[in-house]
Design a protein around this nucleic acid. Structure first.
Length: 284
DNA sequence: ATTCTGACCTGATTGC
DNA sequence: TGCAATCAGGTCAGAA
């Protein structure tokens, strides 16, 4: 399952493979994901073209947080991969396998959504293209800033967390201030910034937030460069396995020596999620 | 308003 | 070997 770097890689893959291509059909095999996949998605996307008009061209692919936004003339297809979702590009006659819930057919190619755990989502947002969706859709409206945007600054983190008692790790995961920092990269970023994950967000100084912002951007950038993935079953939209494990400083390394100071890495749980840190490098 | 808990699911791994 | 418990990269809805 994908964190932001994986979704970013998928986004780029989709753009390269499908933008400018014409969607010719939608095959929905199973609709019970986090929310039901809408009925008649196919006619919603293709619309009712006048004779001779070419309809269903994919115009754009964007990412907002971990949502993929596929722009058509008629509206925006919103895809979230949840914990276990994958998108693959396959020849249209490829026999579907378990958990292949929906196909987006583009002529002789198909974009196939597979999601065993079904935490993912496929939704349709009619009308307003591009930016309008981001302001109007309930799922996107209240998201924090993008980590690579100019709006993501130490000052923002500092001001948004005054009087907050929640642990910084949980603030990062919540996505209310900045999006796209998932469970692995939250631990990794906090390590790089030398901040203990349990520290109350409101007690962290502005200079330390400046460091954290740099650390988050570095961590995500490196993960994207590494091919984006840390997950076992991630498959890029081109079809080849995107499996690539970014070398983690702390995540998944309980008891192993810190790569900086050799102190054993510690594992704890915060709101039922695993957190890893170095008790020596991250003292507060 | 903020924080916490439960819920949604399958599949891989761990432990008895 | 078999079976149950635990855990997994997300995030929403509703309760405290």
């Amino acid at each position: 399952m994908p964190e932001l770097p994986e979704v970013e890689i998928v986004c780029r893959g989709l753009e390269a493979a499908f933008v400018g291509h014409r969607l010719t059909g939608v095959i929905r095999r199973f609709s019970q994901l986090r929310w039901p996949i809408p009925d008649d998605l196919e006619s919603a996307i293709i619309g009712s073209p006048s004779p001779g008009e070419v309809a269903g061209i994919l115009r754009s692919v964007q990412r907002r947080s971990k949502y993929l936004l596929l722009g058509f003339d008629t509206g925006t297809l919103l895809i979230h991969l949840g914990m276990s979702g994958t998108l693959r590009r396959l020849p249209a006659d490829t026999t579907p396998r378990a958990h292949d819930h929906v196909d987006f057919v583009f002529g002789d190619q198909v974009l196939r959504f597979n999601d065993p755990r079904r935490f993912g989502a496929v939704l349709w947002c009619a009308g307003g293209a591009g930016a309008a969706v981001q302001d109007s859709h309930a799922l996107l409206r209240r998201l924090g800033v993008e980590p690579f945007s100019d709006a993501f600054t130490g000052r923002l983190m500092y001001e948004a967390t005054r009087r907050r008692k929640l642990a910084i790790k949980q603030v990062l995961l919540s996505g209310a201030i900045v999006v796209g920092v998932g469970n692995i990269y939250a631990s990794e970023s906090l390590f790089r910034a030398g901040i203990r994950p349990t520290t109350a967000a409101g007690r962290i100084s502005r200079p330390r937030y400046e460091r954290l912002v740099v650390a988050i951007r570095q961590t995500l950038t490196e993960a994207i460069a590494a091919g984006g993935s840390s997950l076992r079953d991630f498959v890029a939209s081109t079809g080849e396995s995107g499996y690539f494990q970014l070398r983690c400083f702390v995540y998944g390394r309980e008891g192993e020596p810190c790569r900086v100071c050799a102190t054993p890495v510690r594992a704890i749980r915060q709101q039922q999620r695993a957190t890893f840190y170095c008790p020596s490098c991250q003292r507060a």
